[in-house]
Amino acid sequence: MKVVSEVRSHGGRQLVLTHDSAATATGMTFSLFLPPQAEQGRVPLVTYLSGLTCTHANVTAKGEYRAACAAHGLAFLAPDTSPRGEGVADEEGWDIGLGAGFYVDATEAPWSSHYRMWSYVTEELPALVATEFAELDMDRQAITGHSMGGHGALTVALRHPGRFRSCSAFAPIVAPTRVPWGQKAFDRYFGGDPDLSRRHDAVALIGDGARVDHLLVDVGGSDPFLDKELRPELLVEACEQSGIPATVRVQKGYDHSYFFVSSFLGEHLAWHAAHLG
């Protein structure tokens, strides 16, 4: 693992790091913020999964999370959204291929050689940071994400009961098997296999019995993708039917951008801190 950069911010350390990934068979880059409390003892970890077209850098530069993390003593981990580099498959269009790994392990060629983001974010990266950063308390974890990353956060939490004390999302793709973005990705990565696709659909997982203790979700009322791609009403319905306490807020006038995410990320981090203890 190599430290690409380190800067001081809000009394903590903002790191950008690279390493060779066994899961993706490529180099991978991620960012990690360690709050000032990490100099005195172990701190909880919030993992943030980014959306389509993004790298680790989008939330690191635009998320405005460090003040809240420093105030609540939270570490903040932001991985990339896909493998990258020579020989990594891509396809024309911003919603598939590079920057669009959808946090799944692809089974279809040519994607299956490198697109193993599920294994990366659920197994390899957590194990790496736990080994390299003794400051992290891996028994106190939370997860959140935006858009495609909101989809990832929901499915990761639903399929790992007990690992995360809290889960939230910004403008998540809640039912990818029922919207164009998810259908396109799952057709490429899974060959349209309905069983594999269902295992990466939050609404379907809840319908099949997966549970989390509580959810916090924000969507922008002026998000151009709200009705066609995000479908938050499907998550509300699934949570009501399953008895999952879910706060789903429509923020009037906000869009899909980091102007929206950064406006409410501090509230989400305070909510996570309350559950992380």
Rank of each mutant, 00 (worst) to 15 (best):
K2V: 10
V4N: 13
V7L: 12
H10C: 14
G11N: 10
G11P: 06
H19I: 00
A22I: 07
A23I: 08
T26W: 03
G27M: 06
S31K: 02
L34Q: 12
L34R: 00
L34E: 03
T47D: 05
Y48M: 13
Y48K: 09
L49D: 10
G51S: 08
L52M: 09
C54Q: 13
C54D: 15
H56G: 05
N58H: 14
V59Q: 11
A61T: 09
A68D: 01
A71H: 15
G73W: 12
F76Q: 11
F76V: 10
F76P: 03
F76N: 07
T81H: 04
S82V: 06
S82K: 07
P83K: 08
R84S: 10
V88R: 07
A89T: 00
A89F: 08
E91Q: 14
E92P: 04
W94C: 14
D95R: 13
I96Y: 02
G97I: 01
G101K: 05
T107M: 03
T107S: 15
A109T: 09
S113N: 06
Y115A: 09
Y115V: 09
R116Q: 09
W118C: 11
S119G: 13
S119P: 06
V121P: 03
E123D: 13
E123W: 02
E124A: 05
L125T: 02
L125F: 01
L125Q: 07
L128V: 11
A130V: 02
T131P: 01
T131N: 12
F133P: 01
A134M: 04
D137R: 05
D139R: 13
D139L: 11
R140I: 02
I143H: 03
T144A: 13
T144K: 06
H146W: 08
M148G: 11
G150V: 01
G150E: 08
G152Y: 00
G152K: 02
S166K: 05
F170M: 11
A171V: 03
I173R: 03
I173T: 05
P176A: 09
T177C: 14
P180D: 11
K184A: 13
Y189M: 05
D193F: 08
D193K: 02
D193W: 05
P194R: 07
P194M: 10
D195W: 06
L196N: 08
S197Q: 03
R198N: 01
R198F: 04
R198W: 00
H200E: 02
D201Y: 04
D201K: 01
A202W: 00
I206Q: 03
R211N: 04
R211G: 06
D213S: 10
L215I: 03
D218S: 10
F225K: 10
F225R: 12
L226C: 12
D227C: 06
K228N: 13
K228M: 15
L235H: 10
E237C: 06
E240I: 04
S242V: 12
A246G: 12
A246K: 03
T247H: 12
R249P: 06
K252W: 06
G253Y: 04
Y254M: 13
D255I: 00
H256M: 06
F259L: 14
V261P: 00
V261Y: 01
S262Q: 09
S263A: 15
F264V: 12
G266S: 10
E267S: 12
L269F: 07
A270S: 14
W271P: 00
A273I: 04
H275T: 01
